[in-house]
Design a protein around this nucleic acid. Sequence first.
RNA 1: GGCCCCUUCGUCUAUCGGUUAGGACAUCUGAUUUUCAUUCAGGAAAGAGGGGUUCGACUCCCCUAGGGGCUGCCA
Length: 443
Amino acid sequence: MKVRFAPSPTGKLHVGNIITALRNWLYVRQAGGIFLLRIDDTDTARSTQAYEDGIRTDLTWLGLNWDETARQSERFSIYDQARDKLIAMGLLYPCYETSEELDRKRKIALSRKLPPVYDRAALALSEEAIAAYKAEGRSPHWRFRLSGQRVTWTDLIRGEQSVDTASMSDPVLIRADGAYLYTLPSVVDDVDLGVTHVIRGEDHVTNTGAQAEIFDALTGGKRPQFGHFPLLVGADGETLSKRIGSLSVESLREDGVAPLAVLSLMARIGTSDPIEAVDSLDTLIAGFDFSKIGRAPARFDPDDVRRLDAQLMHNAPFAAVSDRLAAQGIAISEELWLAVRGNLSRLDDVVEWAQIVSGPMEPVIEDKAFAAAAAELLPTGTYDESTWSMFTDAVKAATGAKGKALFMPLRKALTGKDHGPEMGRLLPLIGRERAYARLLGEG
RNA sequence: GGCCCCUUCGUCUAUCGGUUAGGACAUCUGAUUUUCAUUCAGGAAAGAGGGGUUCGACUCCCCUAGGGGCUGCCA
């Protein structure tokens, strides 16, 4: 079996793309098939190498590796063959209307409350009329002739599906300038490259009707299996806003978010599995099942990515984050990471704690005498996690302070903050020398 | 306008005619952490509305409302 992820290199990969890539990837990794990365760059005017490179970088960062890759711009001769075949079969016919004329026809149909379906006027054109258009300098665009029948298939996610091709316009496969539109290359490649399962968003459901007929025409009736999952909507339940919908993988990465935080959410959103941070892609692969995917649009809230990222960080071993820290230009010790990870809500919060530990910082001292007395009671020798309780016991004995009145002033003096990781772990990192200075009010 | 899909706690969902309508996240309360975060325990919280069918409807049918998709010489 083989699935494909087929982005157009006309922009950056965003959350909507990830969910498509991920669901294809999880399915094929579970089933043990081939994941094809196909770059749909037939629109040479809008496609760029930079975007294509970006897509590969993003997928690699996410950990979604591919087994094969193809580029549509290198395959035009195959599309030419398919074109010729369809013309010979009488299924691809030339049309001479301009965009403006088609637009006008659509508006007239709509104003009469009729469906704006192409009227196939081009099929009735006389030789003379065609000659006249040619003399005028018009070159044709080409439409695929739909059967007008109801096309049915068993959708991997939606079950029995059907679309009535009589209610659709014959799709344009080739533009007047000769460029292939999405539909033909997509079908031809799926056939030629042996794609067995087409898994995509439900914005393609209607398309599937036309594509199924093109598959039938080209292969004599062999189609891949189709699966259409619901699209995401915004947190307000309405259409995914442009800003959120275009939340790019790149921006997530630059923000220091863990790939697994993104993947955990995208794999489970809209499914019956709980949305939780998972520690490996294998967990997501094992749990993937089309039957768990709902049929209603799921709400996407970018805050959920943050939440999962924080959840992941709280238990992350140093080795798991060292690459990300390096990518952010953050250099810290493993001891510091282990001490503060449970208090982080985003990765770069660690910088603040590194600064607090190493200084300089601003001690907060409300009672100078108390702090100065405490400074003299700092244990000598090697500091470890037990040092803090030795220290506080000594301060308690000497000053009589206890409870919050004992701990809070010390915490504020040593860290400048009234909250944070356990002092038992922070104190050894701060060390006696800095701790002494801080208790005397010197950062 | 037309065609297709959808609607259960705030959110993602389970339920496939008979359940105290279950779980997860979020939220609230308590415990732990002498702080905060974490962790643990507990609580509150739902069938869009209206008609049918049925002994019985969240579940099946119809209508309404709301949401999504498509209706491109975009993908």
